[in-house]
Amino acid sequence: MAFLACAKGHLNSNEVFMKKFLIGAFVFAMAVLPIAERRSLTAQDKEKSEQAKLFAEYSNEVKMLMSDWSTKARAASGKMRTATPEERAEINKEMMAAQKTLMATLTGVGEKMLTLASGDDKDTAIDAISWIMTQSQDAAQKSKAAEKLLADHLDNPKVAEMLSVFGRGGIPSEATQNLLKTFSEKSKSDSVKGISTMTLASYLRNGKSMLGSLIENPRFAEAYPDSMDYFKKLAATKDEDVENLLKTAAEKYADVEHAGSTIGKMAKRELKIIETQRNLQVGKIAPDIEGPDIDGVTFKLSDYRGKVVMLDFWGDW
């Protein structure tokens, strides 16, 4: 994550530093939010286990730290604007120190979460794993959490739902992709397989479209030096691979319920969008348009065959 790159990076200037660290804080908040929301829904009405209480305590601790951190970051970036070079150096030093403390605390909490991930209360174990996978900055902790997930929860639909949150938000990673792939292939539950197959397809498609232009951006490459090889691979995903996954999802897991719909419906909708995009590529015959003009008189795009047409989707706003 940018966050980590920032802590390790060699800083050329204050500005680069501030930019990186604000991006980091932002990405961080984005990754944390969906999980936090989900928790408040699932954990409420249950008699809480010891394990669950500890989980609440640890994650709260981090939430407070994070909010503290963003307040500091905002204040620092405000001060930067009017600071002298000496003052800037001082602010940088303070922020680096604060970041180091934060990272150390996160690593510590990550270790405690790993213990919770092995506890008897399966729901909390999954929450702890989810926490590590989204919030830990420690690669070893993440891979341990992923192993736990595969070993203990391969057939649990709750995990498939959680993976679908990972697959749709945050920074793409090879670990996420592998996890989705394993769940979609190895689970004994049709529900898990269906949701994971669908999520993997969306993950690949979103990753491809998001990274397509980003990987050309030098600032992006600078923020994620270790991930660029993977990002390039993801950006080169073939449409065909995505379509095959969606077809599998639509054929084998059509009735699996997910996100207020079914996998069959979701997969078919995605397939249709991909087909539409393919039909709109340069070199394809333009899909005909038939509809009313502004005065209500119906006409067709194909009426203009034989002429060069500049088709302008516009609005006066």
Binding site: A286, G291, M310, D312, F313
Partner: peptide
Amino acid sequence: ISTKWNVRGWPTIYVVDAKGVIRYK
């Protein structure tokens, strides 16, 4: 129409040649 043409940003311009083929976007 914008849905059928998968338009997400405005303005979006396509150029179609005299044979009806999309040539520029």
